[in-house]
């Protein structure tokens, strides 16, 4: 939320000179950055203090996502240590804070900015193909998202787009929280403490009324076709350690008593019972030994084993990665 408000503020503040931002960035010299001093030693000069990598090989360059002007670490320390200050590059009057400075990931600062914008958009638009009824709808959705991102990147209708984004985000949030709340309500956990809220929510969900935000849909900023209605998740069942699997014998029934001469005698023998032997345990083990092989088919297991070899390709690739890096020792000594 805080980032959003910042973004909106930034958009408001930046709107008048928004047109000027991009040319500004384009005019920056976007040659290779500082990590390769050896390849291109002369080109790296800090635009503020004019010192270069030629004299100081360990110089790092930082950018601030407010305006993406590059400057060296020393200048950042010098200018911004005492609180926010305007950007020292001529023509850029943005107020920058030291905390926001970071070293750029990409060589191309335009790309750096684009990725930041994408990050912001992706945090709002995070639908998956499974959320849509058809692939076509999903593709249309993707295209809309791409267009929104482009608007932001190319500084077209920034203000309007951001406003729509904000609305959409809030709508999403509302929807999400309502679904999670309903999910909670179905569970048995919050039964008495939140009696009142629960009752209210139950009224809503049991009556199957339209979703609360559906009334003011035109305010959500964006609407997409073909969205699958969210279902409230099933309340979790009580935990079953065997996951529905029964340990009851399938192929035989255990009786309490078996009338076989020597066994009856052995069961009655005080020597055995004194030693801790119990006849029911003996019966169950013997029957288990005799019948537990039922339902196991060797052919199936052979098939399973044969298919295993081809499924190993994943393991092979992973190990190959380790071998190539040298972390895994491949036996390559003299093969003779």
């Amino acid at each position: 939320m805080s980032r959003m408000s910042r973004a909106v503020n930034g958009a408001k503040g930046g709107a008048p000179e928004g047109g000027g931002l991009l040319p500004n960035i384009r005019s920056l010299s976007l040659s290779s950055p500082s990590k390769h001093p050896a390849t291109d030693p002369s080109s790296e000069v800090c635009p503020v203090c004019k010192s270069g990598t030629y004299l100081n090989r360990n110089m790092r360059f930082l950018v601030n996502p407010e305006c993406y002007h590059k400057m060296c670490e020393g200048c950042v320390d010098r200018i911004f240590s005492h609180g926010p200050a305007p950007c020292p590059i001529a023509g850029c009057n943005r107020t920058l804070r030291k905390a926001k400075f970071r070293s750029p990931t990409f060589e191309d600062l335009k790309m750096e900015r684009e990725v930041d914008i994408r990050k912001e958009v992706a945090s709002v638009f995070n639908k998956k193909q499974a959320d849509f009824e058809t692939l076509r709808d999903f593709n249309d959705y993707l295209e809309t998202v791409e267009e929104v991102t482009w608007n932001l990147i190319l500084d077209m209708d920034v203000e309007e787009t951001r406003e729509r984004l904000r609305k959409y985000r809030e709508a999403q949030k509302a929807q999400n929280s309502s679904t999670t709340r309903r999910a909670l309500d179905h569970s048995q956990a919050s039964d008495k403490r939140k009696g009142a809220t629960q009752r209210k929510a139950l009224d809503v969900s049991s009556g199957n009324t339209p979703e609360p935000f559906a009334t003011n849909r035109e305010d959500t900023g964006f609407s997409f076709r073909g969205l699958i209605k969210r279902k409230t998740p099933e309340p979790p069942k009580s935990f079953d350690p065997f996951d529905g699997w029964s340990i009851q014998p399938q192929y035989h029934i255990l009786q309490d008593k078996y009338d076989v001469g020597w066994m009856t005698a052995a069961g009655k023998d005080a020597n055995h019972s004194a030693g801790g032997y119990s006849m029911p345990a003996f019966y169950s083990q013997v029957l288990c030994d005799a019948f537990s092989g039922f339902g196991v088919f060797v052919e199936d297991e052979i098939k399973a084993r044969e298919t295993q070899a081809s499924m190993d390709a994943g393991v092979g690739t992973r190990n190959a990665a380790m071998a190539a890096q040298g972390t895994k020792d491949v036996n390559m000594d003299d093969v003779f």
Binding site: V315, N319, A320, A324
Partner: peptide, 11 residues
């Protein structure tokens, strides 16, 4: 090296 490892694990 990577190919050898792959051949061993897979084939």
């Amino acid at each position: 090296k990577a190919r050898l490892e792959f051949l061993r694990e897979t084939y």
